[in-house]
């Protein structure tokens, strides 16, 4: 077992242990924080597929996070008021069932990622960063100016959506759902990395020309990765909406894109459990620095700056050492 595997196990089990201990001690708020860490780690895990494995610096993942959130919000609000979502050509009702919402959220964010990715992947490098940011901003402004689902005020979900056999309003049950999904996604990501597709994706990041000469189109590989990445982040958005029982355009804002990116980078780019480490550290900092000073964001910025300048490789890089493969 390498140090990184040990650290991954520690992180994964640590989050579970925190939630279980907090539940046993009756600290509901801590359970909710652990749930938030799991959900944000999932958002980061999505971005990590594009950013870490594909080398695509997307500054627009808030778009997929928000689309997932709005998918949950819109379906739930239609179910709440018994208004059909679409009446023509077939009547489609809203729903409160989480699995259906997750599928819709992933489909919607996947389609958005396909469209945004297809346009953005015409360029690389710094253009790609600016364009993904701009498209996310476009969706943000659309959400603000479209009055049907709350516009600037956001949309309330009322009660939390349902999952067969569980009381989702119980903090530990909802944590279990989010944690299980995070572990499934991280497991699938690990499999993806070893697959032929994962190797091609590594190749597309390292040397697109060589990949091309092997007969594989790097753009198609990257676009597929971008879609998968968007879908996972969309799923986390749906969970986040359920956590807060509220969606608002803030989920789509550029700050959210920046934060998701910070989770990945704080933890370590391209590390399987990097997003979990990053999200956990971010939430811990947010809650502890908040106590030190109301201007905790200044301290957070300073810390981030120091990490970028002096601790490359993020938290996991710091503990487990350099990655062996470029």
């Amino acid at each position: 077992m390498t140090r990184e595997t040990a650290l991954n196990a520690l992180l994964g089990l640590g989050l579970l242990a925190v939630a279980l201990t907090a539940h046993a001690a009756g600290w509901t708020f801590t359970v909710t924080l652990a749930t938030k860490v799991a959900i944000l780690a999932l958002a980061g895990a999505g971005l990590n597929i594009a950013l870490g494995f594909g080398g695509l610096v997307s500054f627009g993942h808030a778009a997929f996070f928000g689309i997932g959130g709005y998918a949950a919000g819109i379906l739930a609000s239609h179910a709440m008021f018994y208004e059909p979502l679409v009446t023509w050509p077939v009547e489609i009702e809203g729903t409160r069932a989480m699995p259906v919402i997750w599928l819709v959220a992933m489909a919607a964010s996947g389609l958005a990622a396909l469209a945004i990715g297809a346009l953005s992947l015409r360029t690389r490098g710094v253009f790609f960063i600016m364009i993904t940011l701009a498209f996310a901003q476009m969706i943000f402004y659309f959400a603000i100016s479209w009055p049907a689902y709350g516009g600037e005020d956001g949309l309330s979900l009322g009660v939390r959506n349902t999952f067969a056999g569980l009381n989702t309003l119980d903090p530990l049950s909802f944590f279990a759902i989010c944690y299980t999904l995070l572990m499934i996604v991280l497991g699938l990501t690990a499999l993806l990395r070893c697959s032929a597709f994962g190797l091609a994706l590594d190749g597309a990041r390292q040397n697109a020309e060589r990949l091309k000469s092997l007969g594989i189109d790097p753009t198609r590989v990257l676009l597929t990765a971008f879609c998968l990445s968007g879908m996972v982040t969309g799923l986390s958005g749906a969970l986040y909406a359920d956590l807060n029982r509220f969606v608002s355009p803030a989920m789509l804002s550029w700050q959210t894109s920046g934060e998701i990116m910070v989770f990945v980078i704080l933890g370590g780019v391209g590390r399987l459990f990097g997003p979990l480490a990053g999200a956990a550290l971010y939430i811990v900092l947010e809650h502890n620095l908040g106590g030190v000073s109301e201007h905790w964001q200044f301290l957070l910025g300073l810390l981030l700056l120091l990490v970028v300048l002096f601790a490359r490789g993020g938290l996991i890089g710091l503990v487990a050492g350099e990655r062996r493969h470029g």
């Binding site: 980078i265 780019v269 964001q297 490359r312």
Partner: peptide
């Protein structure tokens, strides 16, 4: 690389905004 530049300048935004609010 651009990723480090994005993150470092994002950190600068946080510091500038919060510092100005201060």
């Amino acid at each position: 690389d651009h990723l480090d530049q994005v993150l470092a300048t994002f950190a600068l935004i946080l510091m500038f905004s919060e510092g100005t609010r201060w």
